[in-house]
């Protein structure tokens, strides 16, 4: 059991948790992830470690409430417990002084890109960060990014804040402006990562993406997280999660991530039903008393 020390919504359905996990805090490196379970019947969910505090023995994760389990987690508050937290898992980001390094985070991907952006800065890069969101209220970690990287660009799809357009357009603009870019890290929805890969491909800019397939154990044992990279099957949990964006089969990744779409609907319905039942039972018992 791991206690939640702090919890805060960063945007609608996006919540940050600071969790007690001293071992993981001491060990984790940028790019690595943990697997959490919310309760004793919970599924195992991989989440990138967004930050850690060695002294306090805590790690930070950011959760987007999409399915049953992530919605349930986002109902947790400080003082509540995760049933299980295991990690750090996966290979750390490869950090070196490339020159100018651009980290791009779309939606909650900004949170996942953040630790690596900081790591790239510490490795001596001139760091540029592009934080993209659908609309202003969904922009996350802007302050943290501004405090830790050299240049920050915000983009929103609806133009409510920052550049009106997609992160790819902002990146293209930097390239067109003649900025010399040596390395790009892109983390976000798969179509976004694929679009970034296609943006940098003609310029031969080294581009890395962090993949988010469905996992069970996270240690290589089940092979559920397999993806195709450079025409070869990889296990994202132990071989990744970061890979050369120009070699990833994004189509396959999108298809595989839809494996449980139907089950997910059932789970959400079941979850709501249970919650309504609970509320209903409570109302009845209160009426009786």
């Amino acid at each position: 059991m791991n206690k939640i020390i702090e919890s805060k919504f960063l945007a609608k359905d996006v919540k940050r948790f600071v969790i007690e996990a001293p071992k993981i805090a001491a060990k984790r490196k940028p790019g690595q992830f943990v697997i959490v379970r919310s309760n004793s019947k919970g599924e195992r969910i991989p989440l990138t470690i967004a930050d850690s505090d060695l002294e306090k023995g805590t790690i930070t994760i950011i959760v987007q409430g999409i399915g049953k389990s992530t919605k349930e987690i986002n109902s947790f508050n400080s003082g509540d417990f995760f049933h299980d937290v295991v990690g750090p898992l996966g290979q750390p980001s490869h950090l070196e002084n490339f020159g100018t390094a651009v980290s791009i985070g779309g939606g909650v991907g900004a949170a996942i890109a953040y630790p690596t952006a900081v790591g790239l800065k510490q490795a001596g890069n001139h760091t540029i960060s592009i934080v993209g969101a659908r609309t202003k209220d969904l922009v996350i970690l802007e302050e943290e990014m501004r405090a830790n990287v050299d240049e920050v660009y915000i983009t929103t799809d609806d133009g409510s804040y920052g550049f009106h357009g997609f992160v790819t357009q902002q990146l293209q603009k930097l390239i067109d402006d003649g900025r010399k870019i040596d390395f790009v890290l892109a983390i976000g929805p798969i179509p976004m990562m694929r679009a970034i890969a296609e943006t940098t491909r003609p310029y031969n800019i080294k581009t890395v993406v962090s993949l988010n397939p469905i996992m069970v154990d996270g240690t290589g044992m089940c092979g559920g997280c397999r993806a195709t990279v450079d025409n070869k099957t990889v296990f994202v949990c132990v071989d990744g999660p970061e890979f050369d964006a120009h070699k990833v089969d994004f189509d396959l990744l999108i298809k595989r991530n839809k494996t449980y779409t139907q089950s997910e609907k059932t789970a959400v319905e079941h979850f709501h039903q249970c919650h309504y039942d609970k509320v209903f039972d409570l109302a009845i018992s209160e009426n009786k008393s």
Binding site: K41, E43, R44, K68, Y260, S263, E264, T266, A267, H270
Partner: peptide, 10 residues
């Protein structure tokens, strides 16, 4: 499933 959260192929 769905009393336990993890699905498998139906």
């Amino acid at each position: 499933f769905p009393n336990h959260d993890t699905p498998v192929f139906d």
